[in-house]
Structure formats: C-alpha cells, structure tokens
C-alpha cells in the first residue's frame, strides 16, 4: 500500500469532547508539536463512534482512524 517515501498518511481522529479533545487542546496550550496529518472530529463520547463511522472514514480515503476517549 505504501507508494513511496513521501507518503503522508491522512488520519481521521474521533475525539471525545471531555477527554481526548481537551487533551489535544492542552497539547496546543503547552505548545507541543506533532505531525499535521490528523483531522479531528469532535464527538460527545467515544461510545458514539460506531463501526459505520470508522468504515466511512476508510472508504473516503483515510489511511488511518484514531478513536480517543
């Protein structure tokens, strides 16, 4: 699947509003640095992330999915 050395994965991250999303906010406040490949989707609880969401992300071309909660 990996085509070349310049491959940059596109990752959809489902983030729970109360923890992971807040942690990502804090990463910003703390001026941490991480690769810009993540596209966050805020959800109200990781429990609401269904297999449909994960499959849809992959279908739409995401290279990875992260669920944080």
């Amino acid at each position: 699947m990996v085509q070349n050395e310049n491959f940059e994965p596109r990752i959809i991250a489902f983030m729970c509003n109360w923890c992971t999303y807040g942690a990502a906010d804090l990463a910003g406040v703390s001026r941490l640095s991480y690769p810009p490949n993540i596209r966050p989707v805020r959800v109200m609880c990781s429990a609401t992330v269904s297999p449909h969401h994960l499959l849809r992300a992959l279908q739409e071309g995401a290279d990875g999915v992260l669920v944080g909660g």
């Binding site: 990502a24 906010d25 804090l26 990463a27 910003g28 406040v29 001026r31 941490l32 640095s33 991480y34 810009p36 993540i38 596209r39 966050p40 989707v41």
Partner: peptide, 27 residues
C-alpha cells in the same frame, strides 16, 4: 479549531498548518 489543534502545534510548518486550517474549515 485552527489554534489549539493547528497553529500552536504546527508552528514550524506554516504550509501544512494552512492546509490543515482549510480542511478544518471545510469540515
């Protein structure tokens, strides 16, 4: 969220940060 999740964490890569901001706005 183009600050906490973008400009603050990708401060050394303005191009990628700008692209991500566009994506976040599109979303």
């Amino acid at each position: 969220n183009i600050r906490n999740h973008d400009s603050w964490v990708h401060a050394n890569d303005p191009d990628a940060a700008t692209q991500k901001a566009k994506d976040l706005v599109r979303m």
